[in-house]
Write a protein that binds this DNA or RNA. Structure first.
Length: 467
RNA sequence: GUCCCCAUCGUCUAGUCUGGCCAAGGACACCGCCCUUUCACGGCGGCGACCGGGGUUCAAAUCCCCGUGGGGACGCCA
């Protein structure tokens, strides 16, 4: 048994987005690959913005993707005592101090520093205050960071990155209401949860030296760190919930398959030679940090869509039929997973990129559709009425109604007209499906069944004659 | 502004650590052709990149330096 322990630590302030899922996936894969443990920690210390709905949505998203966690999720709001105790310890040891600067004062000084072109940083005003001077005032607890020196982050992916400690800050550990802040809880939690590998997005690289200082002050052993490249939005820059469509569950709801999402995500910043298609299971055997790149990538919905098309095309019809049912229901079609539905699905696997598309384009399997006016004008011409009737009669006389016997009938009809098959097939397509685009017409008829085909052809010819 | 990271086709990337096999490979997108009852799928072909400049070397996409560009971080958010 390996001793690798990784985690994904989302803050439940919204849905699970592409970036979070990417981070979760890499952590999960690294743990699974190394026979380790993957944990979930819900960073809900920001009570204002955290919601139980977001927690549910995030867990659902992960489960949908097939990313499984090994223990019940940890909730930071349930661990407050631990944070306060650790902060108290630092205070007692002189490694932290009380600061009575108010948010307004800090804001003003920060702005002034910026105006002067300096790095906004806490000016350490309260660093040497005596206890009597903080008496009766609201205070926060600040970390007494070393004043000088260099902290080196030994990053698994980027090598050694040096930070001048002077650039760092006396960060706030406990707010005036006693709640802990991010950099502090992360350290306390990662250490107490036994996290061995902290793998996260590049945007946290700057936080790492601060956290290392905290590890040292608290006397915790250091985990290994690895920062992988961020996923940028379509316009470049951080993914934006406004510009980019990045909610994982929204993709699910639009008919994307989890394996497509996983496959898409894993190839962002990671590669395995020229291979493009990976299953989750396969990944747990080959994923390696060594093949993780360094430069950011850009979210490309087109590529995700294409991958989804691939998985729809190659997926099992039975499973897709099952997944399709709710999409049909949304369109007012009550269907059950069945061999028949699987057969219907099969005719659309090569021409649907999402389950939504499949549901949209297959409605005529479930109920007749009025022909598109333009298609009707072009194909449902008067001379088609007798043809439809003739073909319907021949279908009725067939001993077996299969693509092969259907094809024979249509070919004969075309020959009699001295025309190509298309001359006959296209009008029939319109009569049967209401449009000019569909799967192969013989397959469509097989799915529809002889009775329904005859009914629709008869109905169409009657309509033609009426006009 | 300060600090940090990054830099190969439009996009995802292989190649960079361990220089020569790279007149740079694959995939998506795009364009053309073929297949074909429509649409797709598929097949074949095309377009298309080593950010710039110096250096090191017999040899640089690969190593070093400087520019430039992009990104991230600088909260009593996480």
């Amino acid at each position: 048994m390996s001793d690798v322990v990784t985690r994904f630590a989302p803050s439940p302030t919204g849905y699970l987005h592409i970036g979070g899922a990417h981070t979760a996936l890499f952590n999960w894969l690294f743990a699974r690959r190394n026979g380790g443990t993957f944990l979930l920690r819900i960073e809900d210390t920001d009570r204002e913005r955290s919601t139980p709905e977001a927690v549910k949505e995030i867990l659902e998203g992960l489960a949908w993707l097939g990313i499984t966690w090994d223990e019940d999720p940890f909730f930071q709001t349930e661990r407050m005592e631990r944070y306060r105790a650790e902060a108290g310890r630092l205070l007692a040891e002189g490694k932290a101090y009380r600061c009575v600067c108010t948010p307004a004062e800090l804001d003003a000084r920060r702005e002034a520093a910026r105006a002067r072109g300096e790095t906004p940083r806490y000016d350490q005003k309260c660093r040497e205050l005596r206890p009597s001077q903080t008496e009766g005032k609201a205070f926060v607890i600040r970390f007494r960071a070393p004043l000088s020196g260099t902290t080196i982050v030994r990053d698994l992916l980027r090598g050694d990155v040096a930070f001048d400690v002077g650039e760092l800050d006396d960060l706030i550990l406990l707010r005036s209401d006693g709640s802990p802040t991010y950099n502090f809880v992360v350290v306390v939690d990662d250490a107490s949860m036994g996290i061995t590998h902290v793998l996260r997005g590049d945007d946290h690289l700057n936080n790492t030296p601060r956290q290392i200082l905290l590890y040292e002050a608290l006397g915790y052993p250091l985990p290994r760190f690895g920062h992988f490249p961020l996923i940028h939005g379509i316009g470049g820059g951080k993914l934006s919930k406004r510009q980019d469509d990045v909610s994982v569950t929204s993709y699910r709801d639009r008919g994307y398959l989890p394996e497509a999402m996983i496959n898409y995500l894993v190839r962002l910043g990671w590669s395995h030679g020229d291979q493009e298609i990976f299953s989750l299971e396969e990944l747990t055997g080959i994923f390696s940090l060594e093949n993780v790149g360094k430069s950011p990538s850009r979210f490309d919905p087109e590529r995700l869509l294409r991958l989804n098309a691939h998985y729809i095309k190659t997926g099992s019809p039975e499973r897709l039929a099952r997944l399709l049912v709710p999409f049909l229901k949304k369109r007012g079609i009550e269907a059950e997973p069945s061999p028949w539905l699987a057969k219907a699905v099969r005719t659309f696997q090569e021409r649907s990129r999402t389950l939504s598309e499949m549901a949209d384009s297959s409605v005529y399997y479930f109920r007749p559709k009025d022909p598109d006016p333009k298609a009707a004008a072009k194909f449902l011409t008067p001379e088609m009425a007798p043809l439809f009737e003739e073909i319907a009669r021949e279908f009725a006389a067939l001993s077996e109604f299969t693509p092969a016997t259907i094809e024979a009938v249509l070919h004969r009809a075309a020959e009699n007209m001295g025309a190509k098959l298309g001359k006959v097939a296209q009008p029939i397509r319109v009569a049967l499906t209401g449009g000019t685009v569909s799967p192969g017409i013989f397959e469509v008829m097989e799915v529809l069944g002889r009775e329904e085909v005859i009914r629709r052809l008869t109905h169409s010819s009657a309509t033609i004659r009426k006009n």
